[in-house]
């Protein structure tokens, strides 16, 4: 069990570097790679404005949010010992969106207020805690997914209610587009708004890493090995909720990155749930940034929303995992 130096993490970082560069270059205004790089550090006129104020914040947000989604997905999958666990499956993005919509349309705050992430985090926390509580200790994946579906539907209904009660059609359009999830027109203010929460969430989930190993043998064995399972559950649920809430607050509802990313890296980490965390986060960052670049490249009148794109990739993937593991999923306790 000597620690082999795996090229996985350096490889993912290199991939993120390449994608970041692409993200600074791709867009309606044609800017070459050397100009884009120069524009980051020195004044290149219009190119500097485009790169620094439009593409850089967008790149950073995609990386931060992809990272925390990948990390949360890997954490929840480890906690529930189930490869289908993810905040999106638990209805957390919808619940976050509902929390945010509630404060925006109650007229309490604007979209750049610190209250927004807090409301979104409260929504996510409620949904994840509810699903983990309902699913309980010995629930099957069926119970888990059904509970998530119910919570997500409830939050979606709440959001629909808020939309239908809204007197202002422009506000309705705005909220609907925001719900689709996008990094369009985001600024460094959005980065600043989400960064502290994402750092906190990362810290909480990474702190739980050693316990996740013990948990792969089940809750009883983990406890007998000295793991405080309640604390572990608290760390991961809180981390996933804070990360999801902060992300949804600035970029709307983006799902399924957390479901897909851990699967991509797990074969390279020896399926060790603790060693899967960081690579899953990096894979999530790469995945979401790639999705955002793709969204910008698809020729269409209005830009394709990245949240739509991740769902288009993520949902078939989800179904594929179910189909592939159907036999064991029937019996697998969550």
């Amino acid at each position: 069990m000597s620690r082999r130096r795996s090229p996985l993490i350096p490889g993912l970082i290199a991939l993120i570097g390449v994608l970041s560069l692409a993200s600074l270059v791709i867009g309606p205004a044609s800017i070459s790679i050397p100009v884009a790089l120069k524009a980051l550090v020195s004044d290149q006129g219009a190119a500097s404005i485009v790169v620094r104020e439009i593409r850089l914040p967008r790149t950073l947000l995609a990386l931060l949010i992809g990272w925390i989604f990948g990390l949360s997905g890997a954490g929840l999958q480890g906690l529930l010992r189930n490869p289908l666990a993810d905040t999106a499956v638990f209805g957390a993005p919808q619940a976050s969106a509902f929390g945010a919509v509630l404060v925006i349309y109650s007229g309490l705050v604007g979209t750049l207020s610190w209250a927004l992430p807090f409301a979104a985090i409260a929504g996510a926390l409620l949904s994840i805690a509810l699903v983990v509580a309902v699913a309980g200790r010995s629930a099957t994946i069926v119970v888990l997914v059904l509970a998530g579906l119910a919570v997500g539907s409830l939050a979606g209904a709440g959001t629909s209610l808020a939309i239908s009660l809204s007197p202002n059609p422009f506000a309705v359009t705005e909220i609907v587009f925001w719900l689709l999830g996008s990094f369009e027109d985001r600024s460094m203010v959005h980065v600043g708004l989400s960064l502290p929460f994402i750092l906190l969430a990362s810290g909480l989930i990474l702190k739980a890493a050693p316990g996740l190993r013990a948990l792969s043998l089940g809750e009883e064995t983990a406890r007998s090995l000295g793991t405080d399972v309640g604390r572990l559950r608290g760390l991961i649920v809180a981390g996933a909720a804070i990360g999801t809430g902060a992300s949804v607050a600035v970029a709307g509802s983006i799902g399924f990155v957390g479901l897909v990313a851990p699967h991509l890296v797990r074969p390279f980490t020896g399926y060790d749930p603790a060693r899967t965390l960081v690579p899953a986060g990096l894979a999530g960052a790469a995945l979401l940034l790639a999705a955002d670049c793709t969204a910008r490249l698809i020729p269409s009148g209005a830009e394709v929303k990245v949240g739509v794109l991740t769902a288009l990739i993520g949902v078939p993937f989800f179904l594929w995992v179910i189909a592939r593991r159907k036999a064991e999923l029937v019996e697998t306790p969550a």
Binding site: R81, S216, G218, T221, D272
Partner: peptide
């Protein structure tokens, strides 16, 4: 105290 519960399994192909 080492404890071996009944019929335990392993969640991942470790």
């Amino acid at each position: 105290i080492a404890y071996l519960p009944q019929g335990g399994g392993v969640a991942w192909p470790l």
